[in-house]
Write a protein that binds this DNA or RNA. Structure first.
Length: 389
DNA sequence: CCTCCACTGGAACCAAGGGCAG
DNA sequence: CTGCCCTTGGTTCCAGTGGAGG
């Protein structure tokens, strides 16, 4: 018998969608054919990069902008265009995109770049110096026959700089034929760059302002044509999504998320049209999932800290670091980490927006302390931390 | 302005994963 | 195979700092 076990199981496939034509355009990683309202920024990049087509190394560029302002998309778009434009030119240009959240030390980025350029190097074991040499060797030797110009896009550089310092930038700026495009969420990331590197970085800056509601609407309009079947969106849906996202600092990613979740909610409720009220529901769903995601992916020790905060909050106590540590020790039952470490955890939790802290000094007798308060719903926390309490 | 104590930055340590010379 | 050196991610240890009540 040659019956295949996958035969006749069509009924288990999801039913054909009556709302979504294709969800991909709603993903923030989707790269559309044009990026509305980012012409200026993209041409700014192109004006610097055009030098590469003439065979000279372009200036270094830094892009600033909050999340969801199209930084990554613009950089990737420029990358595609540059590669395309270089096809019939006597130059060899490589553009490598590196997300510094994935490769967050100098060593890792250089290893990654070497591998991308066809040189197999170990991900551990070598000294930093050996990796740097291997990397420079590739560029020096014109390994690709013609003069190679390498453009490195460092997305979310601030992460790398904070963690590993400016060593990578130092190495890259001191290697010939390399141009850097760094992308940062924060304007102040240069505090991590030492003067000796800053002076050789000599970068040009491009700012990506937040989108306003109208611009967001244009973006959603364009994407929704690709993503939804005709007449499946109530007229109020797109204006609602854009208005809500405009309030969230003009975050296009958030606007797209809202639109997609609203569609999902419509399907779940058996509708074949997305109504305005689903957008409002979508907002809650997204918030909920975001927090849940953060909480459950937290390392155990940090979950315990959070559980301790939750417990104290429920007991109605004002939470100081000292009390928190006591409560934390109780929850960890012996497997506890030092007081010092808790401070780092608290800071990280604050960074994630889960808690807020307020340092007050109570003078001679009490010294300084942090007053910690929870910023999210206690029920939601309880649901996800029940195993620790 | 002193002082106390929670906070903070940095060094140092540890275990795990890996390369390389001998 | 063995010993030694490397990075990484987590931690602990210790010596400062800062700020308002005294």
């Amino acid at each position: 018998m040659s019956d295949n076990i996958f035969e006749g199981l069509d009924e288990y496939l999801p039913v054909d969608d009556t709302i979504f034509k294709d969800k991909k355009p709603l993903d923030h990683r989707f790269l559309p054919e044009n990026l509305p309202h980012r012409k200026n920024q993209i041409t700014a990049i192109a004006r610097y990069w055009v030098e590469a087509l003439k065979g000279t190394t372009p200036s270094n560029i830094t892009i600033y902008g909050k999340t969801g302002t199209g930084k990554t998309a613009a950089a990737k778009f420029a990358k595609e265009q540059l590669i395309d434009a270089s096809k019939d030119k006597p130059v060899f240009i490589r553009v490598e995109y590196v997300r510094c959240t994935d490769f967050n030390t100098e060593y890792q980025v250089l290893t990654h770049l070497c591998q991308r350029l066809g040189r197999d190097v170990p991900s551990r074991g070598w000294t930093k110096g050996e990796i740097v040499n291997a990397f420079r060797d590739i560029l020096r030797r014109n390994a690709f026959g013609r003069n190679l110009i390498l453009i490195v896009i460092l997305d979310e550089v601030d992460i790398l700089l904070e963690k590993d310092g400016d060593g990578l930038l130092y190495t890259l700026t001191r290697t010939d034929n390399i141009a850097i495009l760094s992308i940062s969420n924060y304007l102040n990331f240069k505090q991590f760059i030492k003067p000796r590197v800053a002076s050789s970085l000599m970068d040009k800056e491009i700012v990506f302002p937040p989108y306003d509601a109208e611009q967001l609407a244009d973006i959603l309009e364009e994407r929704s044509e690709l993503a939804f079947f005709e007449d499946t969106l109530e007229d109020s849906v797109i204006p609602l999504c854009s208005a809500m996202a405009a309030k969230e600092e003009g975050d296009a990613r958030y606007a797209l998320d809202l639109l997609e979740s609203a569609g999902d909610i419509a399907i779940d409720n058996g509708f074949d049209k997305v109504l305005g009220k689903f957008v409002r529901e979508a907002k809650d769903v997204i918030e909920y999932n975001k927090v849940k995601d953060v909480v459950i992916t937290l390392p155990t020790q940090q979950q315990r800290v959070l559980a301790a905060i939750l417990k104290l909050t429920q007991e109605g106590e004002e939470i100081t670091s000292g009390k928190l540590f006591e409560s934390y020790k109780e929850i960890s039952k012996g497997d506890a980490v030092t007081y010092r470490r808790i401070f780092d955890f608290v800071n990280e939790l604050e960074m994630l927006g889960i808690i807020s802290t307020n340092t007050v000094s109570k003078g001679r007798a009490k010294g300084r302390t942090n007053i910690i308060s929870l910023q999210i719903d206690t029920d939601l926390l309880e649901e996800n931390l029940y195993n620790l309490l």
